[in-house]
């Protein structure tokens, strides 16, 4: 199946490109748009982005794999990203990760069989004053405890 933006995304794509002084600069927002539409950035999506952005597909690959926020494989509906860097570590981030692993019965980089959660550890998310913390998809969850993190996960359907 050929990868192609929906009409709505195409309009957004055109608006994004028009916004920048040079088309190349639209690469990251266009990749976000593609990730939003296609779920993750497969080689087919990279080829499509390469075509519409007029850049070689190898360059798209280089960009996609450089950044942590582009997923090249399918991930769960809720991507749990627990910060592991020093300020969060001092506040017990490892215990939070442990609690999540135990509750969801998955390890780092793994997705629950129902496709609901994927668990990752990430580096500092600029929320050190409210450590430990995690990001789930777009949202930050701060001042976590082993108890409240479980309740939080229960609410994420």
């Amino acid at each position: 199946m050929a990868v192609k933006f929906s009409d709505e995304s195409l309009k957004k794509f055109e608006a994004i490109v028009a916004r920048y002084p040079q088309k190349n600069a639209a690469m990251l927002p266009v990749l976000y748009l593609a990730q939003q539409e296609f779920g993750y950035i497969s080689p087919e999506v990279m080829e499509y982005v390469s075509q519409i952005m007029d850049v070689p597909v190898a360059r798209v690959l280089g960009v996609v794999t450089f950044y942590t926020m582009f997923n090249t494989k399918p991930i769960g509906r809720h991507h749990i990203q627990v910060c592991r860097t020093l300020p969060c570590a001092l506040a017990g981030a490892e215990r939070i990760t442990g609690a999540i692993k135990e509750k969801l019965k998955i390890g780092l980089g793994e997705t629950t069989p129902d496709g609901r959660f994927t668990l990752s550890e990430v580096e500092c998310l600029a929320s050190c004053g409210t450590a430990p913390m995690m990001q789930v998809n777009d949202d930050y969850y701060e001042n976590l405890t082993e108890k409240n993190v479980g309740e939080l996960l229960d609410r994420l359907k």
Partner: peptide
Amino acid sequence: LILHRGAGAY
């Protein structure tokens, strides 16, 4: 003034 989002890289 254009707002541009990075994609995860210190």
